[in-house]
Nucleic acid binder design. Structure first.
Length: 288
DNA sequence: TAAACGTGGGA
DNA sequence: TTCCCAAGTTT
């Protein structure tokens, strides 16, 4: 395989965006919070919320000392509010089991709530400077095109980690840059819809380009329609709780909120099952 | 492995 | 208007 790491690192030195979590001394907690927020939410939407979150809770123990409801409320409209709950739980775990210090070890990070293969390695690599393969959706697309010669990546797999590992240089500091560079390239140049191959540092090495940009099999499933979905109902109910917090909301008020009674009940039940809501008497509220 | 899980912006 | 896409994780 050609050396992709060298051109990737060189390109990153000149093209990297100035993002908050890339500032020197941003800290492991800041990195961890940013990675939670960036799970499926675009960078531009995350930035203002990240600043507010870290101002309010500068360390894991600060968040752990507050109620989960406050985390869900501060999460606002970032989407997938379970992440707020998970981040709060992770903060409690960090306080109780790790002396309030964000772990450095990947296995330990993986044991925390809401942290999976991507986030664990992102923290170990970007916050602590260790050498591990970090693979997100951007990196998977870059690898699919440059290495495999495909138009888009297949379903996520543990093999993605091996593919990235094979590309990393031995030098620890450089490996960190290459991880970031692969993500950055996928985010800004090797994009899903309209890749800018004319500006790509890997153009001369890219297998997809060399093959003439073939249309390859796309096994991805279409995202379900959101309008009128169960997710939409959940979102509407939770928004009501969020907007009212810390005041609980009368069940009757929630019921008036969504027209389909069966769907509304499913939403309420599933929110309770997920720990995002609590019912008491005829009231519904965020978790305490 | 696949389905579930929010929300908003751009094409 | 509709569809696609977004630094994933959990069950």
């Amino acid at each position: 395989m050609q050396d992709l790491a060298t051109p990737l690192a060189a390109w990153y030195a000149t093209a990297a965006r100035d993002l908050p979590w890339r500032r020197p001394g941003f800290g492991a907690w800041g990195t961890l919070v940013s990675e939670f927020m960036l799970q499926q939410t675009p960078v531009a939407r995350v930035i203002p919320h990240l600043q507010a979150w870290l101002s309010r809770w500068p360390a894991p123990a600060d968040l752990a000392a507050d109620a989960p409801a406050e985390a869900v409320r501060q999460w606002a409209n970032l989407g997938y509010p379970r992440r707020a709950l998970w981040l709060h739980r992770a903060a409690v775990e960090i306080r109780d089991r790790h002396d309030g210090v964000v772990p450095r070890d990947v296995e330990t990070l993986l044991s925390l709530t809401g942290i999976g293969d991507y986030t664990a390695r992102a923290v170990a690599v970007f916050a602590y400077g260790d050498r591990h393969p970090v693979v997100d959706t951007n990196t998977r697309r870059v690898l699919a095109r440059a290495v495999e010669g495909r138009a888009q990546s297949g379903p996520p797999s543990r093999r993605d980690l091996d593919a990235m590992e094979a590309l990393l240089p031995a030098d620890v500091a450089t490996s960190t840059v290459v991880n970031a560079a692969a993500m950055e390239l996928g985010a800004t140049v090797c994009t899903a819809r309209a890749p800018r191959c004319d500006a790509c540092p890997l153009a001369s090495a890219c297998a997809w380009r060399a093959a003439g940009y073939p249309v390859t099999e796309d096994r991805r499933r279409r995202q379900a329609r959101y309008e009128g979905s169960d997710r939409h109902a959940r979102g509407a109910v939770l928004r009501t709780l969020r907007d009212a917090a810390p005041r609980p909301v009368a069940l009757a008020e929630v019921i008036a909120q969504w027209p389909d009674p069966a769907q509304r009940d499913r939403a309420i039940d599933s929110l309770i099952a997920d720990g995002l809501a609590e019912a008491s008497e005829e009231l519904l509220r965020l978790p305490r």
